[in-house]
Design a protein around this nucleic acid. Structure first.
Lengths: 171, 171
DNA sequence: ATCAGTGCAAAAAGTTTGCACGTGC
DNA sequence: GCACGTGCAAACTTTTTGCACTGAT
């Protein structure tokens, strides 16, 4: 019930769980109830999640989950490339579902704080060119655009496209 | 002696100090020895600086400078747009000289950790277009490219353009 | 049965704040 | 002289770690 994803890039929860388990196995680590629950919750929400959000989500199903376990699990997910740390300008620390990490950038409304994802091939291409021009091999990038959404700008009937994403967290 | 800047965009230290003083005056704040020293050191190093680096630099001239004063001064500088907070992926928190904040992006070597600045108008233009296409008014952005510099890639005689910037900190 | 994982609480790291004293204006 | 600034230490916040106990293989 938590697997409604809105962007086409996303891999489904099951696949991601599979990759996670594969990683655990490879590293001879154990697959536990807590890890599964946390990973499940994490994969089921797209966009971005704070540690605290993830803790609360997980506790809603198992109230005894501790902070440390969430941190530790998120570290594992990051190691195997299924999660990525993201620190936005104002200091909020968030994690995002990866696997598709390379493939989207962020558009953030500085009024609503909501985050929208987008992709633009022209920009990607140009980035490659810039990196090459310095002799670099581009491994990954991060692009964040900060601005005002239609609503924040006071446009009548203006609406923030990012609201949609934020609302979805409520389900 | 600390004002060697390498990129053409930068305003010189004196001008920046002037802007800082103007801001203090406007806000009816006082210009003190400590604030001046810290701002001076900050403006004199380009690229990025951590709180700790700035503290040490300042203490080398006045050992009694405290952490709190550095934090407070950096907050002032940020308020008036002369400094900008930057949180890189791995968690290092840095400040950078602004005024030219809007005008450059970052190319980071994931091996050396050094940071190189660049500008690309095509990318900027495309960013504007993307924002507009979502109905956003673009206020600012942040672009970071992570990759491997020539040296890190093991190219013979390969050198990391970012080294230059890092070396300059030593003066 | 074994050894890694968990939960808790304590510790560490990073940042902010309260307060007595100092200092620009 | 007064109000704001400073330095120090304490408080907070966020993340990590140590340890006794639990649980997956």
């Amino acid at each position: 019930m938590h697997d409604r994803r809105h962007h086409p890039i996303g891999t489904d929860v099951e696949t991601l769980m599979g990759q996670f388990h594969a990683y655990l196995e490879k590293k001879q680590l154990k697959s536990t109830r807590q890890r599964d629950l946390i990973a499940q919750k994490f994969f089921s929400t797209d966009g971005h999640m704070s540690i605290e959000e993830l803790l609360h989500l997980s506790r809603s199903e198992n109230p005894r989950i501790g902070y440390a376990t969430v941190y530790r699990t998120l570290k594992l997910l990051t190691e195997c490339g299924l999660a990525a740390l993201r620190r936005f300008g104002d200091g909020q620390t968030m994690y995002e579902t990866a696997g598709d990490t390379e493939h989207h950038d962020h558009l953030i409304c500085i009024e609503c704080q909501h985050v929208l994802e987008f992709q633009n091939d022209d920009i990607e291409r140009e980035q490659e060119r810039v990196a090459r021009s310095f002799g670099f091999n581009l491994v990954r990038h991060r692009l964040e655009l900060y601005g005002l959404c239609p609503r924040a700008r006071g446009i009548k009937g203006g609406w923030c496209p990012a609201d949609e994403a934020a609302l979805r967290k409520g389900d």
